[in-house]
Design a protein around this nucleic acid. Structure first.
Lengths: 148, 148
DNA sequence: CCATCTAGTCAGAGAACCTGACCACCGTCA
DNA sequence: TGACGGTGGTCAGGTTCTCTGACTAGATGG
């Protein structure tokens, strides 16, 4: 932000381009595959759902949005049949957000597209540089992601 | 997106964490410095303004938003005194968006914070790995940023 | 068993962003 | 020189995302 164009860009901004490209590719591919009712915001929430289901509050924390926002997005996903809410057996207040059938199908497509895009990137950078990039980003995540 | 948590994450998602962290640090630092009326979206537009001023359409393209959105954000920035619009001497249809006094002050603060955050990251990763990271991201930008 | 904390919802508002329609001006080509 | 398609920018209206604030129901600990 607040960067005069055309010069050495800060690392945060440089990180933005691949992220945006990946997200755009995913949305486009999902739309092509018939899942044209998924928005990026919904995807960011859905991406955090664990195998056994995840509480709404946990989703909100990890995606860095408020509980209200997360609840709203889960409502949409539920209405579209991608996820369902089931009672949490360990806490009567809580409910677990789980992937539904349609949700699993989307994940399968998304995984394939992710792999495709990463392969393109690896072809451009080279295998070794790609591995180093991944390693550096994972280490960086240790200090930039509060909800690891 | 559409990623089951806890496993190997895709490179696009890994890129997201540093970007988000940098943006959050910038917004927080600017607010502390008295510029508490800048939003991330405004920052993303302002970041693209060149030394001699930049056309609205160019800003919109580079930030990947529509002309309308860019115009709206520039309106806000202009009202707050960060930028001004001047006629483009080479084209009577166009106007150039330029940094105003207050805008230059913001850029100065932002540059300082960017340098600070990058120094922290370099301390965590090591100088060499940081340089490799930058190089890889710059190469990746060649194929992920349509408006280079 | 009462005080307090946590999970989640409801209500309302604002920011960001879009599509579609439109006007003014540019360059070009007959 | 004058019509014509292309470009810079605005206006109107709507959707999506996200927030703050206030609330209910269930859990937890002295």
């Amino acid at each position: 932000m607040a960067e005069t164009a055309g010069e050495r860009q800060n690392l945060g901004l440089l990180c933005f381009y691949p992220h945006r490209a990946m997200e755009a590719r995913l949305i486009a591919a999902l739309a092509t595959a018939g899942f044209d009712d998924i928005t990026p915001a919904q995807g960011r929430i859905a991406a955090r759902i664990g195998p056994a289901g995840t509480r709404l509050t946990a989703l909100a924390e990890q995606a860095l949005v408020t509980k209200q926002t997360a609840g709203h997005l889960v409502d949409q996903l539920e209405r579209a049949g991608y996820v369902r809410r089931v009672p949490d057996p360990t806490d009567a207040r809580a409910r677990l957000v789980q992937m539904a059938e349609r949700g699993h199908e989307v994940v399968a497509v998304a995984r394939r597209v992710e792999a495709e895009v990463e392969a393109e990137w690896a072809a451009h950078l080279g295998e070794e540089a790609t591995a180093q990039l991944r390693a550096a980003l994972e280490r960086l995540r240790e200090i930039t992601d509060p909800y690891r």
